[in-house]
Amino acid sequence: MHNRVGRGLVILGAVLALLMAGPVSAASAGDTIQTGTSVCSMYVNSIGFGAYCSNGAAYIPNGSNKPPPTWRERLAGRPFVPCRDFDIPDGIRLPKAPDGKKWVMRITITDYNLDTYDGGDKAHLERAYVPVGPVEEAQCPFPNYMEPFWHPFKSNYPPPALVVMPTFTPRVNVPAFFSLTAQSSKAGADKDDPGALSGYIDPNHNLTMRGQVAAMTVDPGDGTKPFKCLMGVTTEDDPDGYDETQDPFHQINTCKHIYERSSATQPDGMYTVKLTITWEVFYWVGKDQGGWHSIGKANVTAVQRLPVQEVQAIGG
């Protein structure tokens, strides 16, 4: 099986317009975790995903048996500021802020113990969207010495690249198969670049995040009902799940649609195909931690203009 990209690949560009769906909540189930010596708060929405971790700069052992410094020792007499204001993550829509104020995402470390090297077992993060002016900003300053206690990182989803097989222009009464390229079906860490979205915590733990397309719902635009296709990361030798050694009527792939009429009477001679792409985001916190854990899903919508020809023959 092999995808001949020149025949079946439609990259986002002039014909595919990406439209963001209404945002899901940034707070997902299981979004606050203890990872080695850090506590991390994670989010996933229709734009992307990421994490905000306390104690982000890990203590690096110097080869001695000396225990790592506690938070109090690292502060060296300076006050601990438990909160930090971040920009609102992309994909979150809020009403207009009151005059003279702006919206921020305020992350606060709570239930911490300064006499531990990682904040203690009860430490966790609380997240809130709050409008702030000069007075509120002064309540949550961020001096330089607090920088080592935080580590934010984020990733956006790649632009979807739609594959239509067996030809870019579907034929009437011949099944058209839909998929996404492997590169546009995943984000964050992968086998080729495991550190793509990974935060160093200590010598034994990294918080690593990745997203992958779990499903794609296709509204073919010809008045028939939308259909849902379960998705997954494909192998390199079979990136689109289409077997070119078989004809379109003998395929295992079920993500298909048969157009019964050409698009000649449609605006610009093309059907408007609507895609709803469901991303699922996972995290992993190092060895012996139970593998990858899902933190939630989010939908991204896209619109594809697709010509369909009244030609029965199959070919490029």
Rank of each mutant, 00 (worst) to 15 (best):
V5I: 05
A27Q: 10
E137D: 06
D90P: 10
L230Q: 08
E280R: 12
R261Y: 15
A76G: 10
S294I: 00
G8H: 00
Q139F: 13
F149R: 05
T116Y: 09
M231N: 12
P67R: 03
S184M: 05
Y283G: 00
A128P: 06
F149L: 12
F177H: 05
D202R: 13
D222F: 15
P131M: 01
V10A: 01
S263G: 09
N3F: 03
D111E: 10
G316W: 03
N206V: 07
R84H: 12
Q312G: 14
R106Y: 11
K102N: 04
A176Y: 09
A214N: 13
P160M: 04
T245L: 09
E136N: 07
G316A: 08
V15N: 15
W103A: 03
A57V: 15
N3L: 08
V24D: 11
Q304V: 14
A76I: 03
V44D: 00
S198C: 01
F86N: 12
K274G: 06
R72Q: 10
P98H: 04
G291K: 04
G56L: 10
Y259N: 03
D237G: 07
G290A: 03
I109L: 11
M1P: 02
G241P: 01
G290E: 11
A76Y: 14
F153G: 15
S155T: 09
T167D: 12
K96D: 05
P170C: 08
V24G: 12
C255I: 02
G22L: 06
D115T: 06
P307Y: 00
